[in-house]
Amino acid sequence: MTTITALGLVLLGLMVLVGGKQGWMAFLSFLLNFGFLYLTILLIALQVPAVWVAVGSGLVVLAVTIFMGEDDLQVALPAFWTACLVAMIMLLVIIGVEHGVQVQGFGLEDSDDLEGMSLTIGVPFLSVTIAAAFLATLGAIAEAAMAVAAGLAEILQKHPTLPDQRLFLNGLAIGRQIIGTTLNTLFFGFVGGLLALLIWFFGLHYTWGAVLNNKIFVHELTLVLISFLAVIVTVPTTALVMIRRRHV
C-alpha cells in the first residue's frame, strides 16, 4: 500500500467516525475536488483556454464544497451565490494583479527542476497562473461565506423582523469573529508550501530588495494577499446577499 492510500483511508475512517454521514460527504467532496483539479490541468494541457477552464471547474468546486459541506439550504444557497459573486470579482482582481506583477511560469531558482524540459509548450503561462490563483482562493471564499451565512441564518431564525441595516452590521460582527483565525489559516497554509524557498533566500543572503521583486516570492505573496482580499470581500457580500434574498 502506498503512503497516500494509507493516509487517505485513515482520513476517511476518522471523518466517518467523527462526522457520520457528514464526514463521509466531507471526504467525498475532497475526492471530487481532487478529480476536478486534475481534470482542469488536463484540459489546459489540451489547449483549452486556462482561465475559462478554471472558471468552469471553479464553479463546480464551489458547489461541491458548499453543498456537500452544509445540509441546510437556508445557509448553503446564499453561501453559494455569495461565493460565485465574490469569485467573479476576485477573478477580475487576479487578472489585473497578475498582469501587473508578471510572475507567470518559473523563476531562476527553478532552473534545476527545468533541466531537460522543453519550455516552448505553446500554453500561455500567464493564464495558467491566473487559473491557479483563482482556484487557490476558492476554498477560503467558500469557508468564509458559509460561516457568515450560517451565523446570519441563525440570527434571522431567532429575529425574523430584524431591520436590514442591523442584519448587515451583524454580518460584519460575525466577520470580526472569524477574520483573525481565517487569515492565520491562510497564512500558515501558504507558509506550509513556502518554507523551503524562504530558507533558500535566507541562506543565500538575498537582500530585502531582491526578495521583494523576486518572481517566485512575489507570486506566492500575491497569492496570500489575494486570498486575504477574497475573505475580506466575502464578509460584507454575504450579508448583502442575505438581505437581498429576504426581499425576493
Binding site: G19, S29, F34, I41, T65, V128, T129, T137, A142, G189
Partner: peptide, 26 residues
C-alpha cells in the same frame, strides 16, 4: 466541528494543489 471540517480541509487542499499547476502542466 462536523460542519466546519469539510470546508477547512478543502481550503488547504486547494492552496496546496493550485501551487503545482504550472509545473504539472510542463
Amino acid at each position: 466541528g462536523k460542519s466546519i471540517m469539510g470546508p477547512l480541509v478543502n481550503v488547504l487542499f486547494l492552496i496546496f494543489m493550485a501551487d503545482t499547476f504550472p509545473s504539472a502542466l510542463l
